[in-house]
Write a protein that binds this DNA or RNA. Structure first.
Lengths: 354, 354
DNA sequence: TTGAAAGCGCTAACAC
DNA sequence: GTGTTAGCGCTTTCAA
């Protein structure tokens, strides 16, 4: 409907109708306080003309001139499929949106970004700053971002290499994993398994959790193992049949944990009687499994909100004191964890069937 | 970080470096096929200069010139609190986003729109079209929209008054309610209650459902009643104590229905033994109640997708054949509905008429 | 095949 | 107090 005929009025038209110059109109209609030195009579005339003409200032022109658009981009490659994933992302979205809106910024969703040249996607003037969740941390990207004209905030763990121009907001992954291990230890478990998804091995949060698991188990002299499964958990039945020595399982995220619990029960594993399971990211979604999932909770909403707030600081030229912000986790104990089984299943009841 | 020092290169700079005019650069770098009549040697030189300068075309300038921005606005006043509501909205978001992105449009979220003057919020040139969910249908708004420079698509039932300039996408509310009534009737229920939230009485979908309920019950000669409760369902305990004659309940939406089921059980009502409950909008969320909720399902994702597709048609100047699109509903029978109780509670336990 | 120039609608420095 | 004017970075006739 390009030629809908309902063109909006422009500054110049208003000026003509009010019999003044465009500068006067600009000052009255859009000017910042101190610049406005216009006779109130003229001002009234201008406002009236504007109303008559249904004048709406063109934000594009203004942004082009002012070099800022009051809108923040969210690089969010899961979009289009959030409803299929964990509620985690919905909470994140909410936290970012709420902060942005209350500060007068708009939010635009960037479904994909060119990883080889991120700037070309977001450096076109429409965005004042970017929140990037699950930003990969390859040296190339780190490099590219350092010469970005717009500031970035990443919503995940900070990688090794220093990178002063980007701010990282994340939870204390290591602390969260420690909470989980400690809980299991208190229940008597001494042999733990960490399960991760394939394809997540370059996600910084995932790796942090994995490392923390290893460290935490080693420090407590626990038997432990790390395993990487397919997204569909096709390894589950073999796992169940193998009657693993591990009695406690920590899954790298909520979604995987809920799936794990459901699948485990399908193949006859009793939870928590035979196996205790803990997830990471505790949202209401976690509690819908049967039994409800014990999970590490990260304060995602606060984190998202902080990420947005920090980005606005950067955009508006206020210096930020730290370029990584780490939030502590807590543990929501529900029913997927319990005391370690006192007796191991007798060998006779083991697999055989099939 | 306005003066970050990482300014991007401009067309003119590229032109200078390549020793050609800006027109040539524009043609090579951003021109549409047929205009490009440039010697390939020059073209190469230009491309090289662009790369050297890290040139990224300024989308603001281009949009200002082209009068379109390839971005669609979503008026979504629930934003910032989606995670607290039903999954319905998340699915909607997904459907819209997926469609938009696949067609090369961006999505920006509009947290609130001035109901007295919607155009001023969205008519500033940044948005090529608007999806408005839960758009009120007061004559004023209808009127305002008719002279909008950007096309609108509303994601809900079409109101009475014709309004050629706006397209409405919704589900067949009446058909859905009929499905629910029919299901209840088959189970033997003859006395039905429709529960709605206060504050939703001007939501077109809600009203359509209410009317359909009345019509459907009347046509089948069923006893029926409509009631409006507070959002927190504080009326529940009085309702339970009153030992209502109704044995079947239809709630106007999913969220309310899930809450209804939970509260009902808290105050001692057995579901479905004493009361059958049906919700509207069946998402995975519906199934998490205990017992799982029987609910009308609307094909929300398809609807959202269609809304976006239609809007793009409008934006790109293709005529649309119909200005209301209605999708049929289905019924997901789960466990919150069952046969009508064979024995009514004895009169002695009732609290006498009044 | 290439370039000059006129704007898209707005802001702000500077003149009067 | 108010007007003139030079851009912001881009596209697109039109002329060369």
């Amino acid at each position: 409907m390009k030629g809908r005929g309902n063109r909006r009025g422009t500054l110049k038209e208003v000026a003509t109708r009010a019999g003044v110059s465009v500068a006067a109109v600009s000052k009255v209609l859009n000017g910042r306080g101190d610049n406005v030195r216009i006779a109130s009579l003229t001002a009234d005339r201008i406002r009236e003309a504007a109303k008559d003409l249904n004048y709406v200032p063109n934000a594009l022109a203004r942004s082009l001139r002012m070099q800022q658009n009051h809108t923040i981009g969210l690089v969010f490659e899961n979009f289009g499929a959030i409803s299929e994933g964990p509620l985690f992302y919905v909470h994140m979205l909410d936290g970012i949106a709420a902060q942005l809106f209350s500060r007068g910024y708009r939010l635009t969703i960037i479904p994909e970004i060119d990883h080889d040249d991120p700037i070309s996607t977001v450096g076109d003037g429409r965005l004042d700053g970017i929140v990037w969740c699950k930003m990969p941390t390859s040296p190339d990207i780190v490099q590219a971002l350092s010469r970005s004209p717009v500031p970035f905030v990443a919503l995940h763990a900070r990688p090794e290499e220093a990178l002063a121009s980007t701010v990282f907001v994340c939870c204390d992954n290591a602390g969260g994993i420690d909470l989980a291990i400690e809980h299991l230890v208190e229940l008597g478990h001494t042999n733990l398994l960490f399960v991760m998804e394939e394809g997540e091995t370059d996600v910084p949060d995932a790796m942090e959790r994995l490392e923390a698991f290893r460290r935490g188990c080693t420090a407590r002299e626990l038997d432990h193992r790390v395993t990487i499964w397919h997204h569909d958990l096709r390894e589950m039945s073999a796992f169940a049949k193998s009657l693993p020595r591990e009695t406690g399982v920590i899954c790298w995220n909520e979604y995987m944990a809920t799936e794990f619990v459901n699948r485990a029960r399908q193949v006859g594993l009793q939870i928590p009687q035979q196996l205790s399971v803990i997830g990471f990211d505790s949202t209401p979604y976690s509690a819908t499994t049967n039994p409800p999932l014990t999970a590490v909770r990260q304060p995602i909403r606060a984190m998202a909100s902080q990420a947005a707030a920090t980005l606005i600081d950067l955009v508006e030229g206020r210096p930020v004191s730290r370029n990584d912000l780490i939030f502590p986790c807590t543990l929501d104990v529900r029913a997927s964890t319990g005391p370690v089984p006192s007796t191991r299943p007798s060998p006779s009841t083991q697999r055989i069937p099939s």
